[in-house]
């Protein structure tokens, strides 16, 4: 696919713009700080987003393999699922890629009339989006499970004690 070759050529520019747009979810006052150090451990938010968006872009260049793509999406969505944003916003970064690609390859697409190829690429983005829904929901379910588990763990011995007392009462 010619368009995919072009995408590959313009990878750096597209990925940079995709990261920029994704990071726009955070206020400008924060971005000034978040952008100054992308060390994996000192700033895991920026690092995770940058690293995994790069990897996602690589996956876009061939047919989507859910087993490969899901763990990459998970890294980003797991963070955004607990940040203060509505579900739609949490995964909107996937859809953002469409706009970034259309802008970056505007001339190419119009000149070569490569709309069909564009639709193929956008279909892959839609596949990523569908995976994102699943991942987002599984992250939220996990949070609810953790909330329930926590109450039980905190009173672990008391629950045991009550159960033992019940058994003793029955034996009488």
């Amino acid at each position: 696919m010619e368009l995919v070759n072009k995408l590959s050529e313009k990878k750096q520019e597209i990925v940079r713009e995709w990261i920029r747009k994704t990071m726009e979810a955070y206020p400008a006052e924060s971005l000034a700080v978040l952008n100054r150090n992308k060390n994996q451990f000192a700033n895991p938010l920026s690092h995770t987003i940058s690293e995994n968006i790069d990897l996602l872009f690589e996956e876009l260049l061939s047919e989507i393999n859910p087993e490969k793509v899901a763990p990459i999406l998970d890294k980003v969505i797991r963070i955004r699922a607990v940040q203060d944003m509505a579900p739609a916003k949490a995964i909107s970064f996937v859809f953002d890629l469409k706009g970034v690609i259309r802008d970056a390859l505007k001339d190419e697409i119009q000149e070569k009339k490569s709309f069909r190829e564009l639709l193929t690429v956008e279909k892959r983005i839609d596949q990523m989006a569908l995976l994102s829904f699943d991942i987002y929901v599984s992250c939220r379910e996990k949070i609810y499970q953790i909330q329930a588990n926590e109450s039980k763990n905190q009173t672990h011995m008391l629950i045991r004690r009550v159960n033992e007392m019940d058994k003793q009462n029955e034996a009488r």
């Binding site: 979810a25 955070y26 206020p27 006052e29 924060s30 971005l31 700080v33 978040l34 100054r36 150090n37 000192a42 700033n43 895991p44 938010l45 963070i79 607990v82 940040q83 203060d84």
Partner: peptide, 12 residues
């Protein structure tokens, strides 16, 4: 950028 809540939330 030293607070875990800032690093996790991006909230200034």
């Amino acid at each position: 950028d030293k607070c875990h809540f800032f690093l996790g939330s991006g909230d200034p």
